[in-house]
Design a binder for these strands. Structure first.
Lengths: 352, 352
DNA sequence: TCTGGCACTCAATCCTACCGAGTGCCAGTT
DNA sequence: AACTGGCACTCGGTAGGATTGAGTGCCAGA
């Protein structure tokens, strides 16, 4: 049967000449648009290749043999496999695709005024609106970023429960409860508050502060308070996850079951955050189907783009869609948001 | 045709004797359980009435004539109309229905420890989990409630932008930006901060404070800051809306379109809030179908229960479901959350 | 007032036939 | 060797037609 080269089952680069690539691209594009299997006829027309359908067919057979395509059943057209989508996405030239939609998004972010939280909310909504996919933005946790401390206070609620209140240069306010294992007086707290303020003023929440290890109640309180602030693990208000366009799942997914699972994931924000982190760590910007190894999203595609502050990962922008999602558009949109937001994050935190 | 009483089209109380009520209840219950039209046979069995199906049938005809039931088509069983559901719900005895589920909810709230925001989030999730319907809790805005001010500070970002930071007795921290139309120095701000603190300490955010109308920058700043705090319309962080179990829409609604619309509403939190407020104002706890007049939710039922602080409306607990939702359970669950949370709200704010 | 009996209705289900998009294969052409 | 036109074949989707059965309305009789 395999007449040409007996070991061509594998996926070395040679199994993909220019025309095969064109055919594959045509199939993927068409399937993304129509959700139907794509036949040789259609490929000929849409790919602009001047060969007969029969020739296309032999290419299709080859592509299927190498695992890029599959047939739902005999006498149906072809549908991309995960591998097919992957090839398509990889060969997508990353040149700033600039559709009107994406530009709209760009200017929306550029002109945005207001508080951070509202900004994230609105941008997430806009991103979902533009792409028609549910969107997620994982905002930088307060521990990250280079917002500096503008003010700090301690407020005592009883002799062992103290609240640390910190105002940051980006006009954000953070609080943190400190539970002591010894008693302090209100006077202690007032003194400690002033000391803490002097210590942390102008620092970044990422910085670790040296606190003299004295044994007076005041000194211990100051140390505990400072520690609580710079403690990575027990994040202050935690990473902020913004979800927008959840109702878009109804547009993108056709079975209730798949919609259900996507909604479920959107609710479990921990899952989303770690999924995004995983992908970004791998340097991936798109995960197709089972690539990310998370079963409930096996029929989905995830597009992510990083949010960075001073080159450090500080969050993510993501879109969820079906495997046949509009990758080019989605990637472009996520990238725009990522860039604009990253830019804004560094400028925001400096002019304070 | 109408042999008995010619003017019986209307819905006066007499058109509903005990047996009719039983039949109606049986139809509603069965339809809620099965989602199928209910026939005379089934009614006989489930309602425990010892009459023949033929007799039931005549009752069904009467109930249909009065508008409580309707037939999807000839030779199908009956399905409740909105009016039918309404009667059913109204006749539901409001005695604390106490299923294991509801008790579980009760104890969950009772034993909950932690911050308010996390509490609302988790309770909303739990409520959705128990009822299997998407749940919404509208938390009391910071303007409401009787949490008192424990501390207050002003932080200047530039000579016209000042941040007001207020720590409340429930360990919540609120912030508010004040934009001035005159310049102040950092020294002014320090002084104003102390004055503001003295003024508002121990007050409730609902109270209005008298501030001497002097014309020095400091006095004006203090007045502006105080006003911003007690300004109802420009709420501090706004009412907090918590949505849980959005993925439950996939269980409760059968068409993508209806699911879509519910998800849409859940996203538009303003709509939810005003819907809940409307219902509570009317004293309603259940809105069925088009009763609330909000078109996108015309095929839904809404169950609400108030959250009160000192007898004042301070929020709401709500569940969204199909018109054939499990009213008894949903109402019981919403009520439990409402009670427990109301209780907790008043105790929380006093022991501070 | 209730009941059993009966003819009737109509959605749902199943079967069948048919259509047509699309295939694989092959012999013939360039 | 690569491409093409031709052809038989496959099989999901659709449309018609018969069947089923749950449920009805009506009525005459208890």
């Amino acid at each position: 049967m395999a007449r040409r080269s007996p070991a061509s089952e594998s996926d070395r680069a040679e199994d993909m000449d220019a025309r095969k690539a064109a055919v594959l691209a045509a199939v993927v594009k068409e399937h993304i648009d129509t959700a139907h299997p794509v036949g040789s006829q259609t490929v000929r027309d849409t790919a602009g290749i001047n060969v007969s359908p029969a020739t296309i067919r032999s290419e299709l057979v080859a592509l299927e043999r190498s695992g890029y395509l599959q047939q739902p059943h005999t006498s149906a057209g072809r549908v991309p496999t995960e591998k097919g989508y992957r090839h398509f996405v990889d060969s997508l030239e990353r040149g700033k695709l600039s559709t009107p939609k994406v530009q709209q998004l760009h200017s929306f972010i550029g002109t945005f005024q207001g508080e951070m939280k509202a900004m994230y909310e609105q941008i997430t909504a806009k991103l979902a609106d533009v792409t028609r996919y549910p969107a997620v933005i994982v905002g930088p946790g307060p521990g990250h970023g280079n917002a500096t401390v503008r003010d700090a206070h301690l407020v005592d609620f009883d002799s062992r429960r103290i609240l640390v209140v910190v105002t940051l240069s980006d006009m954000d306010v953070q609080k943190k409860v400190v539970n002591l294992d010894f008693d302090v007086t209100t006077d202690d707290v007032v003194i400690a508050s002033a000391q803490l303020r002097a210590l942390v003023l102008g620092t970044t929440l990422g910085d670790r502060i040296e606190v003299p290890a004295l044994n007076t109640p005041v000194a211990k309180l100051v140390r505990r308070a400072a520690e609580s602030l710079f403690d990575d693990t027990a994040q202050l208000d935690g990473e902020q996850v913004f979800v927008g366009g959840a109702s878009k799942v109804a547009d993108s997914f056709d079975t209730m079951e798949s919609a259900r699972q996507v909604l479920d994931v959107l609710e479990k924000q921990l899952v989303i955050v770690s999924l995004f982190k995983d992908l970004l760590q791998k340097g991936a910007s798109v995960a197709i189907g089972s690539e990310h190894g998370y079963a409930p999203l096996a029929e989905c595609a995830v597009v992510v783009a990083p949010l960075t502050i001073d080159g450090q990962n500080a969050g993510a922008v993501g879109l969820l869609g079906p495997t046949r999602m509009k990758y080019a558009e989605a990637i472009a949109a996520a990238d725009v948001v990522s860039e604009q937001l990253t830019e804004r994050l560094s400028s925001e935190t400096h002019h304070g």
